[in-house]
Design a protein around this nucleic acid. Sequence first.
DNA 1: CTTTGATCTGAACGTATGTTCAGTTAAGTC
DNA 2: GACTTAACTGAACATACGTTCAGATCAAAG
Lengths: 196, 196
Amino acid sequence: MARTQGSHSDITGPRIRAAALSLFARHGYAAVSMRQIAGEVGVQAGALYNYTPDKQTLLFDLMRTHMEDLLEAWDAEAPQRGGAMAQLEAFTRFHIRFNILRAEAVFVSYMELRNLGPENFEVIEGLRRDYETRLEAILRTGAQDGIMAVSEPRIASMALIAMLTGVNTWYRESGRLSLTQVEAVHWDMVRRSVTG
Amino acid sequence: MARTQGSHSDITGPRIRAAALSLFARHGYAAVSMRQIAGEVGVQAGALYNYTPDKQTLLFDLMRTHMEDLLEAWDAEAPQRGGAMAQLEAFTRFHIRFNILRAEAVFVSYMELRNLGPENFEVIEGLRRDYETRLEAILRTGAQDGIMAVSEPRIASMALIAMLTGVNTWYRESGRLSLTQVEAVHWDMVRRSVTG
DNA sequence: CTTTGATCTGAACGTATGTTCAGTTAAGTC
DNA sequence: GACTTAACTGAACATACGTTCAGATCAAAG
């Protein structure tokens, strides 16, 4: 045979995903047409169906990939020693930095949940819960070790993640504060919010 | 004349806004058609144009009304004495309670910003900034009075609002904790995050 | 009872949608 | 240079969209 089975172009595929992510983030999933995505890539709309069975799966794959990347990146970066407080600081700084670097994927993964079918929704929700549970475990350990005061670790973890993700709505590279400064301000608040 | 000038039905108008709000919250602005909204109300799509010049203005009016209600409600409820710490507690509890009661409007006002034209966007953003500034002023006063430790009042106010609004993503009336308990947990975190 | 006009219907307008598919192109293997 | 097939085009499909508007309806004022 001439070409290897299943070797779809490794150029067009990523370009389609990148264009879709950017357009979905800017205009919303429902407001973006397959023809717009194709136009951005420089192909006809029909060509997209060599890379995704349909529009919603394209969205789902973007969201799933993002959530898996997030979990993998944290699991690779999470400190194994140093205690719960060091882990909490690492989590705080990691979350802000990772989310700012992938602002479009964060935005889409949060905003477009309602455009997923029930099964796809469950998958993404499960990955989100996994991530929240990572933080919850840190807070539980800190409470057990007596170095944190957290009466409701589950709720506290959701509250802290909401606070940290909020940076994405206003942070600009050209802003007054550097990302390191933003991290520091938030770590201050996080630390104090979990200590008596 | 037969009917008073400008007396559009005071039944259909609110029903259209209620149906639009509910549908926008569930499926997103772009995914909801004028025919769906009309169907929910029990009229034909054309009838909607007696109540709004176009679809986007319908969305904009929902968002503007919500933001104005939010500001009015807080300004009416904000304690005039008791110091910055009492004001911060009042703000925390108010924000959670108000936002849970109007979950659909909160959701739409946050998610559908990108479907507004530039001028409409500026109006909603301005109202949002007004609200943030209310909290920022409390934090500044608390810092000046020496009862709070907030190095960046602007960023802290956005962080706290993000944290409190996060409750909307998971709170259910049938859940383990009552709204009062949720308020208490969050007030604990807010208080500690702004005190040394 | 007639008149008035706010309210709504129903059909039409042009345009856009997601998806399919027969057919063309061209890159890589033998 | 012949062959294979992945990659893509371009047109078509049925359906849906936001918006307009002439005309029907009907409650209230005179």
